[in-house]
């Protein structure tokens, strides 16, 4: 092999190696886009860290019976979103335990954080229950849940 062939070969290998993380990042970004696109057709795309990976796994495994509705997706899309959620799920407020029924709203941290909200407030038409984050957290769909942005509708 001539020396310049070795140089070309080396560049090629280097380029291919550099491409691996790039391709992985692109796949991750595509999965995130798909997650937001599919799930926010019905509700906000809840931040993945709000449920442990194990909960996401069960939810994505039973989309045909998703809290009383059929939310099924084709197998490839389900797998793509499931893998992404599994990789990014969990760890919110150091709470790693699966909440009852895999409901974010029944996580220990959620119950703790919303302890001062009276049941009548949840029942207000403009609030429509604890799963409707954006009713009070006005920037919820952007992933912001700061207490400063809370506005509870009457």
């Amino acid at each position: 092999m001539k020396p310049n062939h070795i140089v070309i070969g080396a560049w090629f290998v280097l380029g291919a190696l550099a491409g691996i993380p790039w391709a992985a990042n692109a796949a991750t970004a595509a999965a995130q886009t798909r997650y937001v696109q599919e799930c926010s057709a019905c509700h906000i795309a809840y931040p993945p860290k709000m449920l442990p990976a194990e909960s996401w796994k069960h939810l994505l495994g039973g989309l045909n019976q998703h809290f009383g509705n059929d939310a099924s997706l084709d197998a490839a899309t389900t797998r793509e979103i499931s893998d992404w959620l599994m990789a990014h799920g969990g760890g919110f407020r150091n709470d790693r335990e699966r909440p009852p029924e895999d409901r974010i709203t029944r996580s220990a941290w959620f119950v703790r954080q919303h302890g001062e909200i009276r049941p009548t407030v949840w029942r207000r038409a403009a609030v429509h229950g604890p799963s409707n984050c954006a009713a009070c957290h006005r920037e919820a769909s952007d992933g912001h849940f700061s207490e400063d942005d809370v506005h509870i509708p009457k």
Binding site: N69, D70, S72, D74
Partner: peptide, 14 residues
Amino acid sequence: AAKTEKWFKRSCND
């Protein structure tokens, strides 16, 4: 068409 089918399946099941 895929979206139409997706939602027919979901909504008909519901």
